[in-house]
Design a protein around this nucleic acid. Sequence first.
DNA 1: CAGTATCCTCGGTGATACTG
DNA 2: CAGTATCACCGAGGATACTG
Lengths: 109, 109
Amino acid sequence: MKVNNEIYDCPVTATLEVIGGKWKPIILYVLMSGTKRFGALSVRIPTISRKVLTEQLRELESDGLLIRRQYKEIPPRVEYTLTPEGQSLWSVFNEMAIWGNNNRRVSQK
Amino acid sequence: MKVNNEIYDCPVTATLEVIGGKWKPIILYVLMSGTKRFGALSVRIPTISRKVLTEQLRELESDGLLIRRQYKEIPPRVEYTLTPEGQSLWSVFNEMAIWGNNNRRVSQK
DNA sequence: CAGTATCCTCGGTGATACTG
DNA sequence: CAGTATCACCGAGGATACTG
């Protein structure tokens, strides 16, 4: 997500630049529970198109938050795993979850 | 920001629904240091148009994060103040700032 | 001073079809 | 299975001018 220009570069906006947007939080959240295949991500997030899922995963990869492993098999297999940097976002998500639970009405899954 | 549909309603996305987007973090951050007038916000965030600033402030107000106080004077004076709920976002921003400082290259103001 | 009112641009997202 | 390619849309955000 294009959050802001360099004038306002600050750690908070830098973080939102990486985890903000419509799909990245849920993708990262799903991957927090461990390595997932492309298809598994697609099943867990059924309303995202494969095109957009691919794009978001590529961005998270180039931001160093996850690793893409492609196995040269038939049928193809591609796995996505959080890097330590990606996993370290847990504390951020946790703080957001606490605030959301305390201050928002959240319907449960 | 339209983050996601109800299927993925979770505390994290609920939080991002409120503080995500291009301008809200910086607006909230500026207001963390105390009540500000419309013009003061505009000066501190010079690249936001007044139209968009107005829109964002209205959304933050209807989300209960800030209070808008209008003084019937000439010239007009309008002040924006964080509610306790808005101020309670400090811990969220703090966690994001820590992560950003540890994991991103951030140019200083 | 603190906004509105209009008009417009652009990029993120979606739908659909195709492929190694 | 895990993608690409193409086309299309829509709405957040921006530019500019006007106002109580």
